[in-house]
Design a protein around this nucleic acid. Structure first.
Length: 114
DNA sequence: CGTATGACGAGCC
DNA sequence: AGGCTCGCCATAC
């Protein structure tokens, strides 16, 4: 099932539905390593350009984008999310309470819908 | 095998 | 309520 932790991450990230986002720590936790949040980002960092992994649906626990430090323009990730219907805050952050994906087996979502 | 790196996370003041 | 520091884990060399 899991060749490497990276594969686990990719598998989980690919499970993120459209129009939703999640955090590195969450992906790590779903993989069994709630403390490997950094490694999750490190795994996504190893993704190529034409990757089938929706890496843009992964953000930090603060609802912000931290890719601007890797060379990737945060605008890109933001644009990709906005293209899916995700809304951003005036600070450029996403409300995990509204767009936060809890997991593949969680259908219960805080009302709100909007 | 050990050192260094890094798209994070939570705690402290 | 916000900024800074340490810890954590896996990968690469």
């Amino acid at each position: 099932m899991s060749g490497s932790f990276y594969d686990d991450v990719y598998r989980m990230v690919k499970r993120i539905p459209r129009g939703r986002v999640t955090t590195y720590g969450h992906i790590a936790a779903l993989c069994g390593k709630p403390r490997a949040a950094r490694t999750v980002g490190w795994a996504l960092h190893a993704l190529p350009d034409g990757t089938p992994v929706p890496w843009h649906r992964v953000i930090n626990a603060s609802g912000g984008i931290s890719i601007s430090k890797v060379g990737i323009p945060a605008e890109l990730q933001r644009a990709l999310l906005e293209a899916e219907g995700v809304e951003f805050d005036l600070r450029g952050s996403v409300d995990l309470k509204r767009w936060g994906w809890t997991g593949p087996r969680r259908f219960a979502r805080p009302s709100g819908g909007g």
